[in-house]
Design a protein around this nucleic acid. Structure first.
Lengths: 224, 224
DNA sequence: CTGTATCCATGGCGATACTG
DNA sequence: CAGTATCGCCATGGATACAG
């Protein structure tokens, strides 16, 4: 399987990018992960051996730069790699428009909470430390309760009760919260349908949709 | 290998598109091929069994529309599939900028002549039937000689002497002609370096670069 | 924390031939 | 023209354990 045997640029690109997991690793790098275990968190179902191999391949291809400082290994995208943002964005936009269905196996509370943490609008939150509690129905107990703590311009997510006073709680299914985050479903719609229950002071209840962010692809217009 | 187990749109898109050959099939469909054997010509190294399988997968995914009219089977892209043009173009643009090196195995005279035929600027050619002969150095004899015949607004490529009077000839290596077509190398540069020899009346010699087209990606600016 | 080493099963895919 | 049928390999990648 030595490539496609074509000089076509698309074929040459796919020789590198059609390998399983490769594009997802690039996506993680584009989103800012630089260390091996950061990357692992973004592709949890990928074995470390394979991640290592992919990083080597990408490095050899000139897409990734591996460096060591203070005994810490970092992976960053080269200028070449950074330009893959165009490809990844095109893929994401197409996908969000045309691949709406998610299987149960696609849902993952860890990934979702991590993504939510990464996209919350910190500046919209109160100055003082604020904690939001999540309860995800129909998820294994260990992964069903989450706390989002925003304090001093910093957001943290816990899968255990941090013990802070909770400003508000969100109760919904993993699927609904995922769809909201992806932009497949609006907060409005979910609230009206009672697919999600928000509790707490009315001020907080009103604000929550503006506090929690969404995928950058959420605003891509969907086909009629 | 049941997908990536992620709700991320990029992951969902790649579940479909990271399968070997799939994107190349889409590329062929985008470029206008509609019949099974048309598609085969664009991906000659792909087995018919696998092409069939990919077309089925793409059809199930809603990317391709299969239809039969007059006992003839046609494959076309659905609206969903047509929007993959954004992805394919992003891939091509990135590739042409960053993946310049071509292995010997990437070169293919059939594909190249077919692509040249598809991209020539017919309107730039003389009204009367005009034939150009190609001689590709270092290629197996059977695939080293080609004739391009433009007549009545129609271009044809032959791997045998059609017997028409030849207006001009191009002699070069397969690699050089490929690089010119991709836009990696300019006609100017190739002529100055004597990497390509054009013979015939001076008027024809001057015109040939404008008659023969280039890949649509040829104009993508290359990194400094 | 950042990987490597090893092992094994699976099935993807290539090759070839054949059919209505 | 438009595929199916069959076969078998080997490489991919999943799993697990372990190391510097």
């Amino acid at each position: 399987m030595p490539g496609y045997g074509q000089f076509c640029p698309v074929a040459k690109a796919m020789e590198l990018l059609d390998e399983r997991w490769t594009v997802l690793v690039v996506r993680e790098l584009l989103s800012g992960s630089t260390h091996f275990n950061d990357l692992r968190r973004g592709v949890p179902k990928m074995s470390p051996a394979l991640l290592s191999k992919r990083l080597q391949t990408l490095t050899r291809a000139g897409v990734v730069n591996r460096s060591e400082t203070d005994g810490r290994t970092s992976y960053t995208l080269t200028p070449c790699g950074k330009e893959l943002v165009e490809v990844v964005e095109a893929l994401g936009a197409w996908s969000v428009r045309w691949i709406g269905e998610l299987g149960d196996g696609d849902l993952d509370p860890h990934l979702l909470m991590w993504d939510i943490r990464r996209t919350i609008a910190i500046e919209a939150w109160p100055r003082s430390r604020t904690t939001l509690a999540f309860h995800l129905d129909g998820v294994a107990p260990k992964a069903s309760r989450w706390w989002l703590v925003v304090s001093e311009g910093q957001a943290d997510v816990c899968d255990f009760d941090p013990g802070f006073e909770v400003a508000g709680s969100i109760q919904t299914s993993l699927r609904i919260l995922t769809r909201i985050w992806r932009g497949d479903l609006s907060w409005q719609r979910a609230l009206v349908d009672e697919a999600v229950t928000v509790s707490g002071p009315s001020e907080v209840r009103r604000r929550i949709p503006t506090w929690l962010g969404q995928s950058t692809l959420a605003t891509v217009p969907r086909p009629a």
